[in-house]
Design a protein around this nucleic acid. Structure first.
Lengths: 231, 231
DNA sequence: AACTTTGGTTGATAAATGTCAAGCAAAAGT
DNA sequence: ACTTTTGCTTGACATTTATCAACCAAAGTT
């Protein structure tokens, strides 16, 4: 089983990433020449917090977990990545270090683009640069929301947010089977694993959701929204 | 007393802002033609969260408070601005709304630059664009740190962070007199006013700081650092 | 001078949350 | 088939933190 492949052409995958929409054919080819693909096994580290920011990456298949390694070995999960999502971070154009880690949840294929080439294109192409600004700032808005959610809501509100996030943005269905652990859900909502389990149980008993093992079903999304709003 | 003035020339103030270092004279003049200054009284709103992002601003004198208006009328103070600092936010190149509010702490003069002109220069000048990317991502890193500090430290660690921030980054001295309220300090550390007061009292009793009213003196910065590290 | 308002402080209490320990079930290894 | 490990779950408990109420002092008002 090869861990280094270069099967797909950039253009195919980039169709789904609107950040690449404004590239010319030449620029697309340039990017294509400065990229490579890597396969990861479940649990393996794709980006390591503190490490050198040498490449931007793009998940072409599989799920990934983006998390900040915080204090006392505690992680804060920022988001769950699906194909096809780009992975960057605030080290770009800055200190060129990774400020979060990314690990493979299941079998993952990631496409790595050399950061110099990526930035060169960003400097050449104004539209691309604008999209990049937009992309970075969208992440920024999401982090603001996370800051408020995690500091001003109590546990039921935070778990409601986490479940709605998984349902709406990750698995895109009311019914979904998670491939992340309870600890990951807890790290998404910034609480202890035990507390997360207890709140999920409460939601189950209230009839807002069903949950057998890793199978979730959001029965009353409106109720969860309300809990999220209330705090 | 005029509230609309246009006294200073852009170039003077921009010397201190390294983001403007790479502008040509023409670009500088262009910015200069598309800016205006406004005076604010203490407490007045400079940027309003949710409002249209029509201008980037720069504090030319006085102190400002950047805060997210969260749930249940609770605010989260992101940082305290001093002259000469630029104010933007993740609405730029994105949805062109403000995602935080900014208010004047004391008498403030702010210089507003039209966002279209600002972006035009960013698209023209690659070096400026790079600096802008860097600036935005530096804010992003700081927000990551805030996310960890506020979700993974308990109150003493968070107050230690707040005091060190005020000492090192805002008033730039071990001895300083705050012009913000106890509530603001609490909002900086994401806790209730009463809790903030209590922790400050504990630090006083431990001999780490002195504090009479608004006069603070950091006696043992190392002790505060340790508390910040421990959580 | 008397009154009101505002921000700061304190104590008592209740609520929220984490920690610890134990138990359980499924999966993995031998 | 047995053991071991791993992740999930639950209960009891301790700690952290917010809330509420009262009080105080300074500053502003009448």
């Amino acid at each position: 089983m090869p861990t280094y492949i270069n099967s797909a052409f950039c253009k195919d995958c980039s169709k789904k990433l609107n950040i690449f929409h404004f590239l010319t054919d030449d620029e697309m080819n340039f990017i294509n020449e400065h990229r490579h693909e890597v396969k990861f096994n479940p649990g393996e580290t794709i980006f390591k917090q503190g490490g050198a920011f040498t490449h931007v990456a793009c998940l072409t298949s599989g799920y990934g977990k983006v998390y900040i390694e915080g204090m006392n070995k505690k992680n804060l999960v920022l988001n769950i990545l699906r194909p096809t999502e780009m992975i960057g971070g605030p080290g770009l154009f800055n200190d060129f270090r990774h400020h979060y880690s990314v690990s493979a949840i299941d079998d993952v294929v990631a496409c790595f683009i050399e950061v110099e080439s990526f930035m060169e294109v960003a400097k050449q192409n104004k539209e691309f640069a604008s999209e990049l600004f937009k992309w970075i700032n969208q992440k920024g808005v999401r982090n603001f929301e996370k800051l408020i959610n995690l500091t001003q809501k109590q546990m039921p509100g935070r778990i409601a947010d986490a479940l709605l996030y998984l349902s709406n943005s990750v698995y895109e269905s009311d019914k979904f089977t998670v491939n992340i652990s309870r600890q990951d859900i807890a790290d998404l909502a910034a609480m202890s694993k035990e507390s997360a389990i207890r709140i999920i149980k409460e939601f189950k008993e209230s009839g807002f959701i069903t949950c057998e093992g890793n199978d979730f079903n959001i029965l009353e999304p409106k109720a969860l929204h309300k809990i999220s709003q209330t705090g």
